[in-house]
Simulated scan of single mutants.
Amino acid sequence: MTFTRTTEQSSNYEQLEKMSVHDLLTNINNEDKTVPLAVEKALPQIENLVSKVVEQMKKGGRLFYIGAGTSGRLGIVDASECPPTFGVPFDLVIGIIAGGDTAIRKAVEFAEDDKEQAWKDLSEWNINENDVVIGIAASGTTPYVIGGLEKCNENSIITGCITCNEGSPLSKTAQFPIEVVVGPEFVTGSSRMKAGTAQKLVLNMISTATMIQLGRVKGNKMVDMQLSNVKLIDRGVRMIMGEIPVSYDEAKALLEKHGSVRKAVENFNK
């Protein structure tokens, strides 16, 4: 199969600077509507990877995301939201970006071109055979990400990837590739747009489905969420009221005593 970077192909739209704001927004929205359909086609690939992540986590493994630029930032966002949402340790899902934490806010020149650095970054976390590493790269050609997965493969560590080109070098490197082919961007080559949206949707699926499989959701509620602000405390109180016959004040007292919705409900009347 010949590898074609559809993410780099010319936009389907011309003379963007001559469009009205209305037309710009309408056309961007029309392009965005195609992304969930592209994700749908990749559901079997996503299922295979999530099943493996769950299997490894049940063995005590962790999930790592590695990426550069927008892809790296999206991995960090997903990883950082797992502790407050699901009450898991901060080091269960870990996002790593080429160029280090500085690159979260500001581009670090040529960081993505270092094929050796990702393994060095992963090694700082004492990565092992129970872990899973998912490389994120819209193009599927980022040296930092490919190099990291190659070293993981050599060290018997499960590898997956999320990319937006079919048949890319990254897909061929990952044991569990996910390819969401979204086509040319509205602004040619601006893969923070449809490709970035696709990656975010897939990351949502991976982390959420994994945490549900690990028992971190009850019914449809985030019973292990961190109670880090007034809104979340109120939500937790109302969750408790929905599970056991108590008043608002009684539910709040239980929540304050036990520290989580799950523990409050489990310890009711004990």
Rank of each mutant, 00 (worst) to 15 (best):
residue 1 M to G: 15
residue 7 T to L: 13
residue 7 T to Q: 03
residue 8 E to F: 12
residue 8 E to D: 14
residue 10 S to R: 15
residue 11 S to D: 12
residue 15 Q to F: 03
residue 15 Q to K: 12
residue 15 Q to D: 14
residue 17 E to W: 13
residue 19 M to N: 11
residue 21 V to H: 07
residue 22 H to K: 11
residue 24 L to P: 07
residue 24 L to A: 04
residue 31 E to G: 10
residue 34 T to N: 05
residue 35 V to C: 02
residue 41 K to S: 04
residue 50 V to I: 11
residue 53 V to N: 05
residue 58 K to A: 00
residue 62 R to N: 04
residue 64 F to Q: 04
residue 68 A to M: 07
residue 70 T to D: 04
residue 70 T to M: 03
residue 71 S to A: 04
residue 74 L to N: 08
residue 75 G to P: 03
residue 76 I to L: 11
residue 84 P to F: 00
residue 84 P to N: 11
residue 90 F to N: 14
residue 91 D to I: 12
residue 99 G to M: 06
residue 101 D to C: 09
residue 105 R to K: 15
residue 107 A to L: 10
residue 107 A to Q: 13
residue 110 F to R: 15
residue 112 E to A: 14
residue 113 D to G: 03
residue 116 E to K: 12
residue 117 Q to S: 13
residue 117 Q to D: 13
residue 122 L to V: 06
residue 122 L to N: 12
residue 124 E to L: 15
residue 124 E to H: 13
residue 125 W to D: 08
residue 125 W to V: 10
residue 126 N to A: 14
residue 126 N to D: 14
residue 133 V to G: 00
residue 134 I to Q: 05
residue 137 A to W: 14
residue 137 A to E: 09
residue 142 T to N: 05
residue 146 I to F: 13
residue 146 I to W: 03
residue 149 L to F: 13
residue 151 K to H: 01
residue 151 K to S: 02
residue 152 C to H: 09
residue 155 N to C: 11
residue 159 T to S: 06
residue 161 C to F: 06
residue 162 I to S: 04
residue 164 C to M: 08
residue 164 C to T: 03
residue 164 C to F: 07
residue 166 E to L: 02
residue 167 G to S: 02
residue 169 P to A: 09
residue 171 S to L: 02
residue 174 A to P: 02
residue 174 A to Y: 05
residue 179 E to F: 00
residue 181 V to R: 08
residue 182 V to M: 04
residue 182 V to N: 07
residue 184 P to V: 00
residue 184 P to Q: 01
residue 187 V to G: 08
residue 188 T to S: 11
residue 192 R to V: 06
residue 200 K to W: 00
residue 207 S to N: 07
residue 207 S to Q: 00
residue 211 M to L: 02
residue 214 L to Q: 04
residue 218 K to Q: 15
residue 219 G to C: 05
residue 219 G to D: 02
residue 221 K to F: 09
residue 224 D to A: 12
residue 225 M to T: 08
residue 226 Q to E: 08
residue 228 S to V: 12
residue 230 V to H: 10
residue 230 V to P: 10
residue 234 D to T: 11
residue 236 G to Q: 04
residue 240 I to A: 01
residue 240 I to S: 08
residue 241 M to V: 10
residue 245 P to F: 11
residue 250 E to S: 08
residue 253 A to W: 07
residue 253 A to T: 14
residue 254 L to M: 05
residue 256 E to N: 09
residue 256 E to L: 14
residue 259 G to P: 06
residue 261 V to I: 15
residue 262 R to Q: 13
residue 262 R to M: 11
residue 263 K to D: 14
residue 265 V to Q: 01
residue 265 V to T: 03
residue 267 N to W: 07
residue 269 N to H: 09
